[in-house]
Design a protein around this nucleic acid. Structure first.
Lengths: 233, 233
DNA sequence: AAAAAGATTAATAAAAGATTAATTGAATTA
DNA sequence: TAATTCAATTAATCTTTTATTAATCTTTTT
């Protein structure tokens, strides 16, 4: 998750359940705001910006679906989930039709609630997902390695790598400066650790060394009888 | 929703439930593919590109969680939901921890399933934004490509493109300078990734290369065993 | 110094790709 | 309805690429 706590607003009139959920969610490092009714809720929405709203359908002063509608009008981007005892099918359908991200039926397990919240927040948070995505471009010294196009560039010069070369280099950059045993490399890339594949691996090591010899800070060092260490940085 | 039906792959070994869900989802204008086991599933994933996977946890040949792991490795962007009779809490938590978008317990109401699917697809849908960006006219080096008239012009000379030629060229200009895998091109344009369509693709590559050979700055490069890169600019 | 492991270069065979030609099949027209 | 046309697919052939294997040389280890 990000460096900042995610802000959640819980709209729940029941004192016991409200307290329980608030505390549990706080324990799971969310910043929690608990509104006990619709009026409080709107006030809080005025004063803060939230990442998620959890809405009870049955509220003393306003119907949850109407409140959801109001929330959408005021904050179209705020995702919300319904949490309710009314598990009537029409309600579930109505919940989604007004734009709910999820609809959970009481009694809900707190742990499950937390993983559901985390799951949907991580998907909604584009900044996080982009960071976490498998990187396509790696800097290797003065080289640039594009794992998708399978190219290695150095000062405008572009080398096209073959599948195996690219696989091997990717393995190395993701395991840089640590021993990569023959066995690990072979089972991971060749799928099988035997004499001939090991010979093949050696050929590809030579290829990569040749490609990378423009930058002296990068080295593929052999550890006798064990494997290789890809040194960089 | 977009102009095209969303493609869903359902992995379910139970014949009755599988049939029921398939039919119901088809009725709700999804394009449905039903895999009865893990092996079938992987084959289908090779041959098509999907918008969503629905996974039973209990499969005859492979554990659903392991299959999910495999799916993530092969298709990191494909969202999946679990649909299962095992409503054990640990399973739910495990489901989300491996990256599920939702975890539904049997017996599930079909109507609810559909609204949940629609809700999450609408939130995940990025293709629409990309589709919307398609322009009518593209400059390709000294050429001008009109996607509506399906023409390619060079110094007053006009080449009339066929449907396939135009589709393929459009795919390339909207994905220029990045690897377009055989699979992506074939599933996107031909709808199916198999041996014969790949042969067909090769023929069209030859066509486009011939049309575009007046401008040396444009190249359709092959990446052995992976696909093509349309280089321009 | 001998043996094993590793590095390098070269040879080879299988697979993939490119190109041209033939065939199919649907749409259009006589 | 038969003939024509044109695009897409399939087939046949040739070319290129690539992973592997082999051969040879160099380095390490005992």
């Amino acid at each position: 998750m990000g460096i900042n706590k995610k802000k959640i607003i819980l709209i729940e009139d029941d004192a016991t359940l409200g307290y329980l959920l608030s505390e549990y969610l706080k324990m799971n490092s969310f910043e929690l705001y608990w509104a006990k009714n619709g009026v409080d809720c709107l006030k809080m929405l005025e004063q803060n910006s939230f990442d998620l709203a959890i809405l009870d359908v049955m509220l003393p002063d306003i119907d949850g679906f109407s409140l959801a509608q109001t929330i959408i009008n005021l904050h179209p981007k705020l995702p919300f989930i319904f949490l309710t005892a009314r598990s009537l099918k029409v309600d579930v359908l109505k919940g989604f039709s007004v734009g709910a991200v999820d609809y959970l039926k009481k009694p809900i397990d707190e742990e499950e609630l937390v993983v559901r919240i985390k799951s949907l927040l991580s998907r909604l948070d584009t900044s996080v997902t982009n960071e976490d995505k498998i990187r396509t471009i790696y800097g290797i010294g003065n080289y640039e390695f594009n794992t998708v196009n399978q190219t290695l560039s150095f000062n405008e010069k572009v080398i096209n790598l073959t599948n195996r070369e690219s696989q091997l280099l990717r393995y190395f950059v993701t395991h840089k400066n640590t021993l990569c045993t023959h066995k690990d490399i072979l089972t991971h890339i060749w799928g099988r650790n035997d004499y001939f594949n090991k010979k093949s691996l050696n050929v590809f090591i030579t290829h990569l060394r040749k490609y990378l010899n423009k930058d002296a800070s990068i080295k593929i060092e052999n550890v006798h009888n064990r494997g290789f260490i890809f040194k960089m940085e």
